[in-house]
Design a protein around this nucleic acid. Structure first.
Lengths: 199, 199
DNA sequence: TGTACATCAGTGAACGCGCGTTCACTGATGTAC
DNA sequence: TGTACATCAGTGAACGCGCGTTCACTGATGTAC
């Protein structure tokens, strides 16, 4: 029996698998993940439709793989960079916004996918994404002055909305940045009563 | 030439048109508006597929009619009730949340549609919704202590996210209410420096 | 080393199905005179 | 009032198309001995 197929064989398999995932990202930007078919994705990855089954049982399985293998690393990276930034003396709102846009720029298609499918029509994919995003938020909370999970959730929600606006049209990113920075500054500012308690 | 068809004829036409719109709302909750076909909607409205064309040229046109004729009134109503509530002496955060959930309860399917298709895959529908929501936010801004459009936008974003969570699963609405109320209280609280300026 | 066999990713042909759309028809209703 | 004609919402049959899925086949690669 074959325990491990060898060098180029495995490498080629991984190449095609990744091609399927990346093709899905690209095509989902147009019709949405739920409106995507196995034949369309296979065409995008330049394989025969029937070859799709050598990698995934159906589109739902592919969607979950996409979240596990591409989205999760992006989010972990994003959280890590944000954590580093917050540890510096810089303004929290500024760091949060800067790192959110940096993460989006690292992989625009992937971030677009996250933003769209977080509320998308494919339940399995949406559930997986919301789980990952909840984890991000839970990771952010203890890094904030007010570690309440509600505030971290609000920060994430506002950041994602801002990224949506910025990625929607080509170049209006600066307006979205200024806006969300103002929102987060306000949200994270110590309100009067808290300011009194901590002189 | 016929200038006006008479009583029951027009009434029946309107009945079917509304049935198409309502069927779309119901079905879009399952597969998303973009994944919906003219045949499926016609089946839902109990007419022959070919009769669809007597009312709309295609699904995109139906989507826009849905926003203009059902969503817009809901949003206007919601804004009006919110305005009345804010004029009373009650806490702004509490009024905002209460009226958001009241609007959702007035027409759950319609609110679900707004939440899902605001980020959905059908561009024409998404654009129409974002326009209406931008109008809602613009209407809210002058009613807040801080009339900056950025703050009103943040309020709307957080309310919509909260409604999404509440409508996602059956009964966990109270948790979502408590959460967004905390978020808005924080967002709308006068920060230390503003409190100093206005004694 | 050579030979026989097992595994498995990729493939083309073929299937049945639901889709959007066209078309000619129906029957009820309104208009002209 | 009656008669001939126009309008128009709803319909069933039919079309071509792309879809998901099945199947048997290929060829390259790994394993046994």
């Amino acid at each position: 029996m074959v325990l491990r197929a060898k060098p180029e064989k495995v490498e080629e398999r991984e190449r095609i698998r990744l091609a399927l995932l990346r093709a899905t990202l690209l095509l989902a930007a147009r019709h949405g993940f739920a409106g995507l078919g196995l034949r369309e994705v296979s065409r995008g990855a330049e394989i025969a439709p029937t070859s799709f089954y050598r990698h995934f049982a159906d589109m739902a399985e592919l969607g979950i793989a996409l979240v596990d293998e591409l989205v999760a690393p992006l989010l972990h990276d994003w959280l890590e960079q944000t954590s580093l930034g917050l540890a510096s003396a810089r303004l929290p709102a500024q760091v949060l916004v800067e790192q959110a846009f940096a993460a989006a720029q690292r992989d625009r298609d992937l971030m677009r996918f996250v933003l769209a499918e977080r509320g998308g029509a494919m339940p399995s994919c949406r559930a997986a994404l919301r789980r990952e995003l909840a984890e991000w938020s839970a990771g952010l909370a203890p890094l904030l002055d007010d570690p309440s999970p509600h505030i971290a959730d609000a920060v994430l929600t506002l950041l994602l909305e801002s990224l949506s606006e910025a990625l929607e049209d080509g170049g209006g990113a600066q307006a979205a940045i200024d806006k969300v920075e103002a929102q987060l500054t306000r949200l994270l500012a110590a309100p009067a009563e808290r300011a009194r308690k901590k002189p």
